[in-house]
Nucleic acid binder design. Structure first.
Length: 484
DNA sequence: AAAAAAG
């Protein structure tokens, strides 16, 4: 089964081929023909399954068959976060190269001016977060009466974030006769209700959750005391001892994100931070620094837990155990992507016991407990030893992710077997002697002992199709219109 | 409980 068998146009197939993909993922196989036929669709799937391409590809063809110069937007894609909206826009740009389609990315945190200008010129596709869309609509800047194709992406997350009333309102502004696609990782009752109300005779497709038990992510728990400095100490040891080429570290609070990033930088790590209190340009800039390898550590709030798709993340650390088991699944799903292996550590304090139990219940998988790398008798949170920076610089090598890959892109033809990242991405891996998460010092602390690394559960089968990470450049939000 | 999203 190839993309050519799905009924896509030659122009589109060329774009897909040029991007290096030939074999559709399961959700793409099932969704694309149905979308092309104009049917409503419920897709139970989360990021990491090729979901985005499953609607972007057929949408491009559907829109391409209509008039090429839109007087008013003909389609609308709703995303819960700005970052996800941007990733979808990237996909449109990439697969739409051979089509004369224009789009506008309508998200908060950036000036409205350029978005308004784009709308006035006329676009085919709106990619939006609900808040900014409603805002622009309220100002009379958007006509939704021509939007006969609607995509509601990550519906369960929209629910979590309280967007459902907005979604309902937006739906009522759209033409009654339209095609609606709804994607959601789970189907809680409110989402079912939403689907019943706004979709007609939908086809339902479901693909396996990528981050259930049998994946290529090695999960570990490290018991720690609740003290912040002890947790930071443990984290630093883990960053140094393991083969960490790059890592996302999740915290539960924005203040913790800031404090931890500050502390890591003080200790010589190359880290960046992302959370919702930062303005959009700063968020983009930090994410970009992580994606292009300027830094190899990203300290993040749950703004980055879902959907954010960076190729080649070797480790996820939960500095705080997440409150909700779903968040755990999403967080650790930032690693082990694209068929690579990944490792997820969770620092667990005695108070977290209940949450961990919930996580293990959800995943049906008992997470391995490993001993803390910090001696119980009290390694202190000692300041970084002052020393001169004469040693080797490894910043260049920390920018390993060169190869193209699209978020949610169709799978490359390759073995379904999970392979170590270093075999498929020759630029990415670090020699194990030079774990790049190490502080930029030429020596490591004297008392650090490297534990014997054994029993790493690598090369396990995964039951999902491989998926590709996204590593494209960050779109220029201030001026984001693709002209046809 | 937190974070996210409109400003």
């Amino acid at each position: 089964m190839s993309f050519a068998d799905l009924g896509l146009s030659d122009d589109l197939l060329r774009a897909v081929t040029d991007a290096g993909y030939t074999e559709p993922t399961p959700i793409q196989r099932q969704a694309i023909p149905s979308v092309l036929m104009g049917k409503d669709l419920i897709g139970i799937a989360q990021t990491g399954t090729g979901k985005t391409a499953a609607f972007v590809l057929p949408m491009i063809d559907v829109l391409g068959e209509g008039r090429t110069r839109a007087l008013m937007p003909r389609s609308l894609i709703l995303e819960p976060t700005r970052e996800l909206a941007a990733q979808v826009a990237e996909n449109f740009e990439k697969y739409g190269v051979n089509h004369k389609l224009s789009m506008a990315l309508l998200i908060g945190g950036v000036q409205m001016g350029d978005q308004v200008k784009a709308l006035e010129k006329g676009v085919d596709v709106l990619i939006a977060t609900p808040g900014r869309l409603m805002d622009l609509y309220g100002r009379g800047k958007i006509l939704l009466t021509g939007c006969s194709l609607l995509v509601i992406d990550e519906a369960d997350r929209m629910l979590d974030m309280g967007f459902i009333p907005d979604i309902e309102e937006i739906c009522t502004k759209l033409p009654k006769v339209r095609q609606t696609l709804l994607f959601s990782a789970t189907m809680p009752p409110p989402i079912k209700k939403l689907a019943d109300r706004f979709l007609s005779d939908p086809k339902t497709i479901e693909v396996a959750r990528p981050a259930s038990t049998n994946t290529n992510i090695t999960q570990r728990i490290v018991q720690v005391s609740a003290t912040a400095h002890v947790k930071r100490d443990v984290l630093r040891r883990l960053l140094q001892q393991d083969e960490v080429s790059n890592a996302i570290i999740f915290c539960n609070r924005k203040t913790t994100v800031r404090d931890l990033n500050k502390s890591l930088k003080k200790h010589g790590f190359r880290s960046a931070e992302i959370h919702g209190d930062m303005d959009q340009s700063a968020r983009i800039a930090e994410l970009d620094r992580f994606k292009n390898g300027d830094v190899n550590i990203l300290v993040a709030s749950d703004v980055a837990a879902r959907g954010i798709d960076v190729k080649g993340v070797s480790h996820v650390f939960n500095f705080d155990a997440p409150w909700h088991p779903d968040d755990y699944v999403h967080r650790i799903g930032r690693t082990g992507r694209g068929g690579a292996t990944g490792t997820a550590y969770t620092l667990v304090t005695p108070e977290d016991a209940e949450n961990i139990a919930e996580i293990e219940k959800l995943t049906g998988h008992k997470i391995e407990r490993v001993p803390s790398p910090v001696a119980v008798d009290g390694a202190e949170d000692a300041p970084a030893p002052k020393r001169t920076r004469g040693g080797k610089r490894d910043t260049k090598k920390a920018a390993p992710r060169r190869e193209e890959a699209a978020a949610e892109a169709p799978a490359k033809p390759r073995s379904r077997r999970a392979a170590p990242a270093r075999e498929e991405a020759p630029a990415a891996p670090a020699p194990r002697e030079e774990s790049r998460a190490r502080p930029q010092r030429d020596e490591r602390p004297v008392r650090e002992e490297r534990p014997v690394r054994d029993d790493r559960r690598r090369r396990r089968d995964q039951d999902d199709g491989p998926d590709e990470g996204w590593n494209g450049p960050i779109p220029d939000f201030l001026n984001y219109v693709i002209e046809g």
